[in-house]
Design a protein around this nucleic acid. Structure first.
Lengths: 141, 141
DNA sequence: GGCGACCGCTTCGGAAAACGAAACGAAGGG
DNA sequence: CCCTTCGTTTCGTTTTCCGAAGCGGTCGCC
């Protein structure tokens, strides 16, 4: 199982298109999060782990190895992890996503300051697939 | 385990910060890919599956259900899947990432004109990107 | 020098997620 | 009717993730 890398076939793509490789690399659990948490400076292994809500160290090591190989992250002499310039760019590319997430939150959970207009509920299909999934975002903390 | 949703605790984050929820939602296999493949218009289940390199139907259905619940994707009366306006925004937020991936490819495997390279991958042009990485979220809508 | 508290990192067993192929009923064309 | 395609579900297998414990090492402290 090769790590995703542009120019090499990645999971689900034999073309090796860069974006597909990036989607594979970042479409792994905690990849984006690690990137995000490193955005404000280098961090050691355990501090980074804590910053990532105590994710499992085994997975973190694996993600870190992938990110190191992808030259998105590098390791300082004191063994801390730091974004490479390329990694910082990737982090910048995450900016729009962060902005979007705010909009997303607003749409899913409109602030009940003025309960006049409801969201356009176009849920035509969804008969009984979920059952246990509470879909209404009404109780935001 | 509930689907990621801003305002609710998601995997690895008790804060419910929108970005963390988004990172959880999109940090699942094929999520980003599905979003990406829908960018140029609505697709039916099997066509979308083929577009996603024949990913497993079970996982696709699950991702689709999550995306539907997140109001990122909705289903047309003819049962095709289409990005919501919110989903199109998310796709736009992916634009910088697509641009980044091109830079990433260049850094990992520089292909200078005067230098021999043994990369067997055709990366000269891709229908998915507009050459310079400028992405059009599709004229659908 | 011994002790406890961190550190980066690995190992391992169990849980969850992804996979992939088969199958279902419905719709459409010949 | 037959054959294909469709959306979707089911199920057994493989992969990934998790999470806690443990390794050797360094540091401050007494």
């Amino acid at each position: 199982m090769p790590n995703p890398k542009p120019g090499a076939p990645v999971r689900g793509s034999t073309t090796g298109r860069p974006l597909m490789a990036a989607l594979d690399l970042f479409g792994r659990r905690w990849s984006l999060r690690i990137l995000w948490e490193l955005r404000s400076g280098p961090l050691g292994f355990r501090p980074l782990q804590r910053q990532c809500d105590d994710m499992s160290s085994s997975v973190m090591r694996q993600r870190l190895a992938e990110l190191l190989e992808a030259h998105v992250v590098h390791q300082l002499p004191d063994s801390r992890y730091e974004l490479t310039p390329l990694g910082r760019d990737a982090c910048l590319a995450l900016g729009p996503l962060a902005q979007w997430s705010e909009r997303w939150a607003a749409v899913l959970d409109p602030q009940p300051a003025h309960r006049n207009s409801d969201q356009p509920t176009d849920r035509t299909s969804h008969p009984d697939t979920a059952g246990d999934g509470t879909l209404q975002p009404g109780s935001a903390g």
